[in-house]
Amino acid sequence: MAIVDVRILVEGASDVEVVSKALQGLALGSEYNITISAIIPTTNVEIAKSAAAGADLLIIATDADRVGRDLAERLFNELSEMVGHIERMKLPLGHDLEHVDVELVRKELKNTLVRAGLKSLQILPEYMALRNQLLDLKGRYDGLAEEYKRLHEEYKKLTKAYEETKAENDRLREENEGLKALLENAKNIFRIDEAWKSLFPAEPVPDEAYIGKAVEKLGLAGRVVVGQGYIFAEDKALVEELLKTVYLSLAIREEPPKPPESPEDEPLPPKPSEEPEVAADPEVKSDDIEGLLKGL
């Protein structure tokens, strides 16, 4: 159990002697678990504040006359927020140890300590209510702390996604600005379908993405831009060469070369007849002879 720090504030040095004498007959440590850490002789509020700040219990011991009561009230108002608890103690009139009833001072000091303890018991229910409220608030705080941790992790993920999206947006903006500049400065703009049909009227128009890939493969990026159904190029001849290359690529991909025929598939020459054929009509006409001679 913690020791209770008690300090006693008196009006002057003679009161220090009176209070010290009274304390000699009290076993405060064993009976009340308290210690008198300081007896402060002063009527100055600022000095009292400095000396009493942080005490668990402050006893203001002043004379029982009107001056003592006024001083005690003023000190009580000024110091109440700087200490745990304040109790008023009345000293009997007179400051001479030979004429002061020390036993009476000791009894008053003991009663003051008892009053402080009883007042502490009176506020115990309020303390317990505050303690329960504190425990409830602590439970809510722990729950909010967990929620904050979860939200913080989600925030970090969203921040990362935002940064990635922002970077992609910046890239697209830069690409769009380049396309816009190219549109503003381009000499020739061609529709893909019209340019293709002008070269290959009977062939279906290829996919725009395929043409864009051809631009990359041929190293034409920067000179030719494909998008939104258009081709943007420096001149028409470059567009025609690009489309011809695309056409050739599609033709090769769609019509792979046929493998050579096997010699086994070739027709065999007719075998020569062992006996010469004999015409059914052996008669030879003069017109036939003349035709053969002309053929030679």
Rank of each mutant, 00 (worst) to 15 (best):
S50E: 15
S80T: 12
L58H: 09
T35C: 05
A27K: 07
S80P: 02
V16Y: 04
S30F: 04
L23H: 00
V16Q: 11
I60E: 04
L79E: 08
A53D: 10
T35M: 13
I36G: 02
A27F: 10
A52C: 15
E73K: 13
E17H: 07
V16F: 12
G29W: 14
E73Y: 07
R69H: 08
K21S: 15
S14Q: 14
I60K: 08
N77V: 07
R69C: 00
P41Q: 02
K21D: 13
L57F: 05
L79Q: 06
G12E: 12
V19S: 07
A64P: 10
G54T: 09
L57Q: 08
T42I: 00
D63Y: 05
V19W: 12
D15P: 00
A27D: 15
P41Y: 06
A27S: 14
I47R: 14
G29K: 15
D65R: 01
N33D: 07
A13S: 10
I36P: 02
I40P: 01
A55S: 14
G54E: 09
I39Q: 04
G12K: 10
L23I: 01
S30P: 08
A38C: 09
L75I: 06
G12N: 11
L75H: 10
A61Y: 07
I59W: 11
G25C: 03
E46I: 08
G25E: 15
G29D: 15
V67M: 03
E31I: 00
E73F: 09
D65F: 03
L58N: 02
I40M: 01
I39C: 03
N77G: 07
A53H: 11
R66C: 09
S37G: 03
D65Y: 04
L28K: 09
E46T: 10
R69D: 14
R69Q: 14
D63S: 02
A51S: 12
A48W: 08
A53G: 01
I60Q: 01
A52Q: 07
V18M: 13
L28E: 09
A38F: 13
D65V: 00
A72H: 05
S50K: 13
S37I: 06
L26N: 10
L26R: 09
N77C: 09
A64F: 06
N44H: 12
A61S: 04
E31V: 11
S30K: 13
P41I: 06
L26E: 13
D63L: 01
V45H: 06
I36A: 01
R66L: 14
K21H: 05
P41G: 04
K49D: 11
I59K: 04
A13M: 10
L75P: 14
